[in-house]
Simulated scan of single mutants.
Amino acid sequence: MDARLRISALLTASTLALTLAGCGEDDTSAEDPTPAGSTSSPTADSTSSDEPDPADPSATGSPDEGGETTVPVYFAGETPQGVRLYREFRRVDGDPFTAAAELLTTGDALDPDYRSLWPGGTFASVEAQDDAIVATLADEAWTERGDLSANGARLAAQQLVYTLQGVAQERLPVRVVDSSGTPAPLFGLEGDLTAAAPLEVLALVSVSGPEEGATVADSFTAAGVASSFEATVPWEVRDSGGKVVVDGFATAEGWMDKLYPWASEVDVSGLEPGTYTFVAMTDDPSGGEGFGPTEDSKTITVE
């Protein structure tokens, strides 16, 4: 076995030990080492990679001149490791915590490949306090697990934790309370909710830009985060029939231990105007013997 395949085998074994494999539409099969509902604080290494991408100037969380705020919202999507979370940056009006939570709970994603694990409902309020982000339940509908599996409930809780911590730009725990301000369970999970390690709940590659439905001309900068073999993030532009018409790769700032930012210039000046799909993926050194590459795709229009 050559060195590349030996490394691939080690990575596959490591991934099997760490990942939450999907068990149905809203499910994952393995236990989280740092499950939602834990009162322990995440380490810096387990969360620092999920700060806004340095290559993405919109990932600031500060209101722009029009009064809108850019917030990260985490939605669920399919990956070779099962259901994982993908980040989508959205511009919202009004209170960013409330707006981001509403996008999450309603599943109002721009990307049709994304969805929410949450059943219908809404929070009465969401606000950052000194020691926690406090989400107040509108009723008791989300206190019990309902139709969610145990692992599906944990991943749904991670949607909320990652989203609200991203808005706050601080790793505060998320505290769910009832209308009287008394701590309440979320989907049966008791206690303050903290972030699980990114490699356990997030997709191994995601695209922050271009956003779904973007219009581009000549060239554009694609960017996102990934944990991919030897920091290589292959990408493709595919036409409406799925044919690869442009391809290349980005080099992320690191790999294996967490998600790292990546960015690449994509030249589409030679393409006819029309609708295309930009796809970023993880490198697959196993040649199809392992899980296969994780992908994130965005529909774009070339002028």
Rank of each mutant, 00 (worst) to 15 (best):
M1R: 08
D2C: 07
R4F: 10
L5G: 05
L10V: 07
A21D: 04
E25F: 15
D26G: 13
T28H: 12
S29E: 13
E31T: 14
T39H: 15
S40Y: 09
S40W: 12
S40I: 11
S48K: 12
S48L: 13
S49Q: 05
D50R: 14
E51P: 02
E51C: 10
E51V: 14
A55N: 06
T60A: 07
G61K: 02
S62P: 03
P63D: 04
T70V: 15
Y74V: 12
A76C: 09
F89K: 04
G94P: 01
P96T: 02
A99E: 01
T105I: 14
L117E: 03
L117F: 11
G120H: 11
G121V: 10
T122G: 06
F123G: 00
A124P: 02
S125R: 10
S125H: 09
E127I: 14
Q129P: 01
Q129G: 12
A132V: 12
L137Q: 03
D139K: 09
A141K: 11
W142N: 00
W142L: 05
T143E: 05
G152S: 08
A156F: 06
Q158F: 10
Q159P: 00
L160K: 01
Y162T: 03
Y162S: 03
G166N: 03
V167M: 03
A168G: 03
E170H: 12
E170W: 13
P173N: 11
S179M: 11
A184L: 09
L186T: 03
F187I: 09
G191W: 06
D192N: 13
L193W: 02
A196D: 01
P198V: 15
V201C: 03
V205S: 02
V205K: 00
S208G: 07
S208I: 08
V216C: 03
V216S: 03
A217S: 06
A226K: 00
S227G: 06
S227A: 11
A231G: 01
T232I: 15
V233T: 10
R238L: 15
S240L: 09
G241E: 02
V244Q: 05
V246F: 05
A250V: 10
A252M: 09
A252L: 07
K258W: 12
L259Y: 08
L259W: 08
Y260K: 06
Y260W: 13
A263K: 04
D267R: 07
G270F: 11
L271I: 02
P273E: 03
T277R: 14
V279E: 03
A280N: 00
D283K: 01
G287H: 05
P293C: 04
P293A: 09
T294S: 13
S297A: 15
S297R: 12
I300G: 00
T301A: 09
